[in-house]
Design a protein around this nucleic acid. Structure first.
Lengths: 204, 204, 204, 204
DNA sequence: TATGAATGAGGTTTCATTCAT
DNA sequence: TATGAATGAAACCTCATTCAT
């Protein structure tokens, strides 16, 4: 009765601890102490240590997905959509460096056993990018030569790598700079060069 | 009796085991058995379990770097250089899926303590990409609007993500397709728009 | 369920096991089994195996010191004091042969690393003897030719050696005999012989 | 052909290493390195690690016994004999602090398993003291109230404790002082009171 | 005799998980 | 629900010993 959302507190503590020590070097008791609960209490909310990581991931992905969907609302231009998507991803990362670390680093490690688990949220995340690309292709804004799925994955890889560098390293460039960079690189690669041919041509 | 390079055998075994179970879920005794040596023998060649991972990384990076340098020999065109770089990366990954997994997945996990270690090889790898970009910019082939360092990182992220997907997943697309995809996306983004040089077009 | 002092139980078990097998040949699991606890439980009460030995020592010394102080209460005569001290030491040893072995034998072995630890109790023990000697010298009962500190040490060595022999060997002599022996040897050597000549003399 | 007495070199190395680290914390390889031989070579001269300690002990005791016997040669007065015995013990210890440590410290530790082994040398050492006392008693120089065996043990304990203190600690007193101290304490306790005797003299 | 690389048994210690309260 | 003392399985690593050369 005292604690409204103990589960939440444990998840937040886990993100903090996992980010600092890495999943395998974190102790359940550390998470418990950080959350201000007893060791045993954790097992009232989670099946085991691994389950905490999974829930952290699912919860975080849900939140990020929610933000992305919110951010996309009302947007029409595929180029704009992609730009906003990248921006939102960076903002999410910037907001919680710890979360970024856990998601990008710890998650890969665990991906082996996670493949068996519910990885849908990540699939949906990639799906969002792919859908934007497809729409762009349909609208004639993006070149049809690139596979939406593969490109989505490539874009995610690039964004994620930079976000990781930004999150973990001594950020030399500002977040928005880094973000702008990434998008420019991709967008140019994606866009049909309407200008290219015609403009160039333009022989009246 | 004719054990020429026991160290090598252990490293190879480690890659195999780490790739399958993940570093933290692998037991030293598994590696020993896979290598066909006694548990204790491992400690004649490596300081501890972690050291095995580090050596795997260093050795592999050295090998990949060597290949990349060899592949770049004689190339002049920046676009060609980048294309070849990506290809070589994919080929290396394709050759040893296990190695790819260990490098991309396990390594991140360990990056916390590894930052303190000799990560030079990875820096050199990124450096190669950055240098290619710089040369391209100097030659007027690549746009100057993008920072070589950040772009190198983004490109690596994309390549690596796809390589990982290819290595771990049920490869739906062929290796060369995936490879071609990535490069096209980037190269287009990087290249100065020949069109932009409507000059080329030239309306006289 | 009714485990009042698990720490105590472990210490007692340790004394027993260490005495029988020697510290370095004892396994923590043996101590655990003897104490009726799980292996891991030991580490809730002690830092490590070595720490058990140190605590055994400190606890035992505290107890012996307590007894000695109690036994000395109300005594005035230095000779009597020394005699009682020896008696009490023997009695303590007699009470727990195992404890004697651990303290006298195992402790020396560990003295190297223990010098850095809290050896105060032992110093206090020697100090008690030295103080008795000093008081005896001040009272004119003991010769001033002997250094209290060195003599204390010598006396301890003798008492301890006999206690050890008694504790470990096939005791051929009774405890009280052995005890009486030691004290007589020392006390005679310590006492000033004022009386000796004259009194005996009685030249007619 | 090169090494005349490899066995000797190993024993000397062992004394050095055991004294510094203690028997159980010493590694056979350390002894080998200190002796300048290969690990395996040690097993050509000794059955196992424990055997090295035993041989060190036996050899050292033999040497000390030889010295004592040599020192006792020509002596007649029991008091003088005991004094010389103590002096010789201290001198032996002084000569090789390491040896003293090994004998007094490590040996006790190992006494459990050594009881089954040939401990004769130590028995002979105690026997020497006991014999001197007996002779003194027979000659009327020492009181008959003390058991030679127990007294010998007590004396050894005292001498050894002081030698140990002297060997391990920061020697505050000179060796000869410490030595003189011990003997005075004992001799006085042992001697029949020349004074007391006059009474014996007579009254005819 | 001498070597030293290889062995592999086994101990200390950790830590996820349980369960009596 | 909550606790946290207790559990005990299991892993890393050491190191005495062997044996092919």
């Amino acid at each position: 009765m005292t604690e409204p959302d103990k589960r939440r507190r444990i998840l937040d503590a886990a993100v903090k601890v996992f980010a600092q020590y890495g999943f395998y070097n974190s102790k359940v008791s550390q998470v418990a102490k950080e959350a201000g609960v007893a060791d045993g209490t954790i097992y009232l909310y989670f099946k085991n240590k691994e389950d905490i990581l999974i829930q952290v991931f699912i919860d975080s992905m849900d939140e990020i997905l929610r933000r992305q969907e919110e951010a996309q609302e009302g947007l029409e231009d595929p180029v704009e959509k992609l730009r906003v998507f990248a921006e939102t991803h960076f903002l999410s990362v910037a907001e919680s460096r710890a979360l970024a670390e856990v998601i990008t680093v710890e998650l890969r490690q665990s991906s082996k056993f996670m493949r068996s688990t519910d990885m849908k949220p990540f699939g949906r995340y990639l799906g969002m990018i792919a859908k934007i690309i497809e729409e762009g292709q349909d609208a004639g804004a993006f070149t049809r030569t690139l596979s939406p799925r593969l490109t989505a994955r490539a874009i995610f890889g690039a964004i994620d790598e930079l976000a990781l560098e930004w999150a973990m390293g001594k950020r030399q460039s500002s977040l928005s700079d880094t973000c702008a960079h990434t998008t420019e690189l991709f967008l140019t690669g994606l866009q049909t060069r309407p200008t290219s041919t015609p403009s160039s041509g333009g022989k009246p």
